[in-house]
Computed example of a mutant assay.
Amino acid sequence: MRGATFGEVFAVREFRVLFGSFVLLIVGDVIKMLALAVLVYAQTASPGLSAAAYMAGWLPFILGGLFLLSLADRLPPRALMITGELIRAVTCLLLAYAGLPVWALLALVLVTGLFSPVFFAARAAMLPEVLPGDAFVLGRSVLNVASASGQVVGLAAGGAFLAFAGPSAALAVTAVLSVVAAVVLRIGLPHQPARGAAEGGAVRVTLRVNRRLLADGQVRGLLLAGWLPCVFLAGAEAMVVPYLGGQGQAGVVLAAAAGGMAVGEFAVGRFAAPTLRERLSLPLAVLLGIPWIGYALGPGIVWASVLAAVATAGLAYQLGLQRRFVDAVPEDIRGQAFGLQSAGLMTGQAVGAALVGALGEGIGPGPAIAVAGGGSILVALALAGVLRPSPAPRLARG
């Protein structure tokens, strides 16, 4: 089977629209959370509350993923994505100019963020519809690279803008980016009807479909293969700052990790044929953990950066799972399936950071990173039966 090319992917108008709006979303969200953390710190002088503010935008993924994901299939995708951008714009303006106390700022972010998994799921489920076959996998690779790059750009641009104009103006910039993204989506995407029928309440349907997805052995295996190695990766990355003594050098290592991810996604997505890409899933998943073991030797910033970059290049293992995941779930619940995939990933990363962080308190950051690497290898080997491609039946409708 011949693999798709970047030229073929970007030749699709709908993908260009999804790509452009996604970049605006990622950059805007990073600026938003950075500005909110600065705004809270300015009001409270509390590092703990400032950190909580930075993470507040991601916490609702857990609840939204558990109870609201069915909306991604029961409502038209373009309307959902536009609604998400407009909610983000209004939220940012309220955070910037409404003069809310800190508890209200955090509550607003948490409540409006409950629907973020739904908006992300609508976008993810639309991708295989506009990019059939192997083009879908390459499209996911492009979006993953854009996500890593967008986070770096967002942090750099957000930091510079915060220093120049302050947090309120930075939040206003995010609002403008969201409005631009909404306009791009409205003009660039055609209207499509909802994939699934509206039967029963959103919470009840979400719980039922989540149980159905997790009860299927093939789908459950693919979900776990996408989640579990990343639990240990998030734990290792969470220890980079204390490993380097809280110094700014940690930013160099984390930037190297983002670069390694981008290079791995690009190389495997573009140059590996579809069948090879799927065969590479297991060795790349093992690679995800091996370099972190080197932190037990106490490397300096240069080698720490190299090890982090090599490790995150292994994240390209997920590309070999994407086509199989799309084939495993029916179209009418595809949005919820992708939403469950993302929500579980977010939750697992938070759990991994907390667990490895607790371990680091006891044995030190370097050894904790090494343990996380070893755990990642063991999990990849335990999931070898899933990571090795094999034909399997599609999840039945009903």
Results as ranks from 00 to 15, higher is better:
A37E: 00
A37W: 00
A37F: 00
V40T: 02
Y41M: 04
Y41S: 12
Y41T: 04
A42S: 14
T44V: 01
T44E: 01
T44F: 03
A45H: 15
P47W: 08
P47F: 09
L49R: 03
L49K: 02
S50R: 11
A51L: 14
A51D: 09
A51T: 12
A52L: 09
A52K: 01
A52S: 07
A53D: 08
A53T: 09
Y54L: 05
M55S: 15
M55R: 08
M55K: 09
M55N: 11
G57N: 11
W58V: 03
W58Y: 14
L59Y: 15
L59K: 11
P60C: 04
P60A: 04
F61P: 05
I62M: 14
L63S: 14
G64L: 03
G64M: 02
G65W: 08
G65I: 05
L69I: 08
L71W: 15
L71V: 10
A72T: 00
A72S: 05
R74W: 10
R74A: 13
R74G: 13
L75R: 14
P76F: 07
P77N: 05
P77V: 03
R78F: 12
R78M: 07
A79S: 13
L80F: 03
G84I: 02
G84K: 02
E85A: 12
R88F: 04
A89R: 07
A89L: 07
T91K: 09
T91N: 10
C92D: 04
C92T: 05
L93A: 13
L95E: 06
L95Y: 14
L95H: 12
A96Y: 05
A96M: 03
Y97T: 03
Y97W: 14
Y97I: 02
Y97C: 06
A98W: 07
G99M: 07
L100Y: 15
V102G: 12
A104K: 08
A104I: 07
L106K: 08
L106S: 11
A107D: 06
L108P: 14
V109D: 06
V109P: 08
L110S: 03
V111G: 03
G113S: 00
F115H: 03
F115A: 10
F115R: 02
S116I: 05
S116Q: 10
V118H: 01
V118D: 00
V118Y: 02
V118L: 01
A121V: 08
A122N: 10
A122V: 06
R123P: 15
A124W: 13
A124N: 13
A124T: 06
A125W: 11
A125H: 11
A125G: 15
A125T: 06
L127M: 10
E129L: 13
V130M: 10
V130F: 13
L131Q: 03
L131D: 07
P132F: 11
P132K: 07
D134A: 10
D134H: 10
A135F: 06
F136I: 00
V137M: 04
L138T: 00
G139K: 00
G139F: 06
S141C: 07
S141M: 04
V142L: 14
V142M: 14
V142I: 11
L143N: 13
N144C: 02
V145C: 11
V145M: 12
A146T: 08
S147N: 12
S147L: 12
S147Y: 14
